[in-house]
Design a protein around this nucleic acid. Sequence first.
DNA 1: AATCTTTCCTGCCGGC
DNA 2: TGCCGGCAGGAAAGAT
Length: 271
Amino acid sequence: MPELPEVEVTRRGIVSHLEGHHFVGATLRNPSLRWPVPHDLGHTLRGLKINAVTRRGKYLLFDCGNGTLILHLGMSGSLRLLPAATPPQKHDHVDLILDTGMILRFKDPRRFGAVLWATGDVTHHALLAQLGPEPLTEAFDGRLLYERTRGRRASIKDVLMNSRIVVGIGNIYANEALFSTGISPLTPAGRISMRRYEKLAQAIKETLNLSIEAGGSSLRDFVNSDGSPGYFQQQYWVYQRNGQPCRKCGTAIEQTRQGQRSSFYCPHCQR
DNA sequence: AATCTTTCCTGCCGGC
DNA sequence: TGCCGGCAGGAAAGAT
C-alpha cells in the first residue's frame, strides 16, 4: 500500500511527462472513490497547463494555476502513464488525458483513493490545512516531536501515524523507525525524552529516504509498465515478521494491536 | 467468510 | 455549563 515513499517515487516517475504540458480532458469510468470525482472534471481540466506536480504528505498536487488537482492513492491506488489508446483494465477508474498523446491512468481496486479539484490556495483546502510538517524537511525534528507530545498519553506509534503531528508515516514506517530507535510502539508519547526523540526523528528520515532511493532505482519501469514502484520486496526489520527471529538479537518478533492496526516489535530490542 | 488494510470523520470523555 | 483537545471506534471495498 502506498506510503510516502511510494507516493514520492510515483511523483518522480510522472513529473517530467506532465510539467509544462496541458490537460485535454478526463475519462471517468467509476467516479465513486472515497469522495465522488467531480462529474465535470474533464471540462474543468480542458486546456489547463500543468505548472508543477508536488507532494504534500501522501497527496499529489497538480498545480494548474487557477486550480489544483488533488490526488490520493488511498490503500491500493496506482498511477501509470500510457498511450491514450490503451484499453482500460479492471479498476482503472479515471484517466487524465494529456496533450502529448499519453494518459495518466488511475487504478484503485479498493477505491479508497481520491481525485478532487480545488480552486484558490490549495494549502487552505480542508484535506491539507490541518496537516503537520513534512518528515523530510527541517521543520520536522526531535524537538517538534517532544514539544507536541508533552502531556499525551497516546502511544508513540499512534502519534507517529497522526497526520496532524507529522504527515506521511504509515504503519510500515512507524514500526520500522521505532525498531531502529529501540522504542516500544506501546510507549506513551508523553514519557519519551528529548534525546530519544532526536534519534527517532533521524531514524524516520533515514528509513523514508532509503525507501525512496530503493524505489527510484526502478523509475525507468514506470512508464508503459506495470506502474508499481517495484520495491515492495524490501526487507523489513519487524513489519509482518511476527514469530520470526529479530535480525539483531534473534528474539521472536511479537505482534500486537493498537487501535485497529497491527504493531510489530522485538520485545528485547525495544523498550 | 471473517479478516485485513488506511484514512477521515464522528462523538464521547475529562479538564477547566 | 459549555467548550476544547485528545482519543477510540466506525465506515469505505476488495482480496484471500
